[in-house]
Structure formats: structure tokens, C-alpha cells
């Protein structure tokens, strides 16, 4: 039995969920794969220490931190503004996805991460703060600012962003 079998089993079971998080963070299929791959390579080395705890939470935290770290480095363009290559249908939902992708690409990396963790992963403020390494108060303010920026960038998304439940989350 290979010493990495447990790790392989974890990756096989959770890689698609983690890939979706990476994709929402980067907005680009290739970058998302690179991001997840680079994190999993590091996690493989730490696996013996992680396997008894909550490895998925660790990987998610590492994904977010690696993403923010990459975005801090000089880069030539905001990546992730490509339109979806597949799955687009001609309905309101498709239009919302197109506009939302473009608006997300214009957010600061931490704000984008907060949107993904709070509103897609449904993490609590405390869990989001843990993943981002900041205080719950910072998460609250980042969520508030991120939603405000999305509204400014994409007024067409008002119906998505003015949901009362979300207002409560960002208050």
C-alpha cells in the first residue's frame, strides 16, 4: 500500500468541489487547475499531520491564501474575464452569470474570496475569518464593500444583490 493512498482517496472524493472554489476565485479554468494543483502538492507533503483533522477546510484555506498571494504579485491583466465556454443558455440566468463573472473579476482578491466563501460556500463569518486569517469584523466589512462594488460595477445584477437575506449577511 502506497503511503499516499489516503491522500489520493481524499483528492478523488473532494477535488471537484475544491476545483469549483478555485474556479470561482480565479475565473479561469487553467488558472484554477494550476491553483488547486499547487495547493494539493503542498498538502500531499503535510498529509500525515492533516488526515486526522479537517483536511478540506485546510485545503480551502490554503486555496484562498495562495490565490491572494498570487494576486499580490505583478500580473499583466485581470484574468478571469473570459466568457463561459460552455453551459451558457439564453436565459436570464446565463446573462447574470456573464455579468457576474465580469464584475467578480474587478473585485479585490480578498473581496472576491469573501463573496465566494460567504455566499457560495455558505461559511459563517467565523469560518470565513479563519480561512482568510482575519477578524469576523473584517469579513463583515469586506462583504459589505464587495457587494457595494458589485452593485456599482453591474447595476444589472440588482435583483441578485439586493436580496434581503444577503443584506442581513453583510450588515
Amino acid at each position: 500500500m502506497d503511503r499516499h493512498d489516503d491522500f489520493r482517496e481524499f483528492v478523488l472524493a473532494r477535488q471537484q468541489v475544491l476545483m469549483r472554489t478555485a474556479y470561482l476565485l480565479t475565473g479561469d479554468a487553467h488558472l484554477a487547475e494550476d491553483l488547486l494543483q499547487s495547493v494539493l502538492i503542498k498538502v500531499a507533503g503535510k498529509w500525515p499531520k492533516l488526515s486526522g483533522g479537517n483536511p478540506e477546510a485546510y485545503v480551502r484555506k490554503a486555496l484562498v491564501n495562495q490565490y491572494i498571494s498570487w494576486k499580490r504579485r505583478p500580473r499583466p491583466e485581470v484574468l478571469g474575464t473570459e466568457l463561459p465556454e460552455r453551459g451558457a443558455s439564453h436565459d436570464d440566468a446565463a446573462l447574470h452569470r456573464i455579468v457576474l463573472r465580469q464584475a467578480l473579476a474587478r473585485l479585490a482578491p480578498r473581496q472576491r474570496a469573501v463573496i465566494v466563501l460567504r455566499f457560495w460556500e455558505d461559511l459563517t463569518e467565523a469560518q470565513t475569518a479563519e480561512a482568510l486569517g482575519c477578524s469576523p469584523g473584517t469579513v463583515k466589512s469586506q462583504a459589505h464593500h464587495a457587494l457595494a462594488r458589485l452593485r456599482a460595477f453591474a447595476p444589472e445584477l440588482a435583483c441578485l444583490l439586493n436580496d434581503s437575506e444577503m443584506e442581513e449577511v453583510a450588515r
Binding site: A22, L24, P84, H96, R97, I115, W120
Partner: peptide
Amino acid sequence: ALDGIAAEAP
């Protein structure tokens, strides 16, 4: 909407 984008992940 985020779910819809995430579903496009390869």
C-alpha cells in the same frame, strides 16, 4: 448565479 459559474469548472 455563483453555482452556475462554479458548474462551468472543468
